[in-house]
Simulated assay, not measured.
Amino acid sequence: MSVAAGDLRAYLRLLAGQIWHDQDDAFHHGLTLQEETLTETLLLKMARDFSPLGLEVLMFNKGQEGENGADWEWFFDGPECSVGFRIQAKVLKRGEGSPGKYAQLGKPAGQTQKLIDDAKKYGLNPIYIFYNHRWVQNHHLFGPSVQPDWFGRSCWGCSVATAEFIKGISDTKGNPDKNLATVIKGSRPWHRFFRLGKTCGTQKATEHMPGGQEFRPRSPTPEWVIMLREFRSANEEVRRETMDRVLTDRDVQGVALITSRQEG
């Protein structure tokens, strides 16, 4: 079964809107949602909601924080598109008196190059996912990215830029320009990036994005994908011990398998 591209695109727009509005609500209640929280919330909602679209989501995160990198690996496994991503998530800092900057982008210095190197090591595509909101001076920059594919500013709640673009806006020490006005020039709403239906439209999206990043269309299947499938019925203690070891070895905080391939 393959997910209809239009259904997935519409669903991703809804998720982006939820991130946009959740941050709005959080700010009103005196909260700041961190990258890890937003990422895990997104994946949990996807796991709950994707079945009607013909997709299954399996995921796993580290039981202990701070033991390894904040990267995530996502692997999309479908009949026409089997591709993986190494992901860094960053949140737009709140500040009505600020033009808009991304928290901890490029911290420590050289983080972007490490993301690129780690992705290359495993045959994955290195990208950034940005969680956005309206609580900055330059919120007007969240305007139409392309016509007629425009559904209001909230579709910018989740946006994507390639790691090569972020590297290109970095200084000689590897510190990227954190300003929204700079980052958005290489960003796209994520519903325009994750175009994974009967064809792998994500490759075309990457090729048309600033940064000149090469797309790896057929990623080797990570060992954690096999383990996620095999350990679904395993003892929880055994499953966690094994998966924690794998995630530590790969230096990631979590993984997610999104598949539209029916298994026999």
Rank of each mutant, 00 (worst) to 15 (best):
P176A: 02
I129V: 06
T172M: 14
Y131Q: 10
E164N: 12
S159P: 15
K178R: 15
V183E: 00
V146A: 12
A161C: 14
F151S: 04
K178Q: 14
F165H: 13
H140C: 06
F151T: 09
N132R: 00
S187M: 12
A163N: 08
N179C: 14
F130R: 11
A161Q: 00
S170G: 08
I129Y: 03
H191E: 07
F194W: 04
I184E: 04
S145R: 13
R134T: 15
R134L: 15
Q147I: 12
F165W: 09
L196V: 13
G174T: 08
K167W: 03
Y131H: 09
L196G: 01
V183Y: 01
H191F: 08
C158H: 14
V136I: 08
F151N: 13
G174H: 01
P144M: 04
L141Q: 09
S170T: 01
P148R: 10
R134C: 13
T182A: 13
H133P: 13
D171G: 07
K185H: 11
F142W: 10
V183R: 02
W190N: 09
W190G: 03
R153H: 10
K178V: 14
H191Q: 05
F130V: 10
I169H: 09
R134I: 15
T162S: 12
A161N: 01
K173H: 13
R188P: 11
S154W: 14
Y131S: 08
F193L: 03
H133Q: 15
R195S: 11
V183T: 07
S187R: 06
T172A: 13
K185G: 05
F142R: 08
F194G: 06
N132V: 03
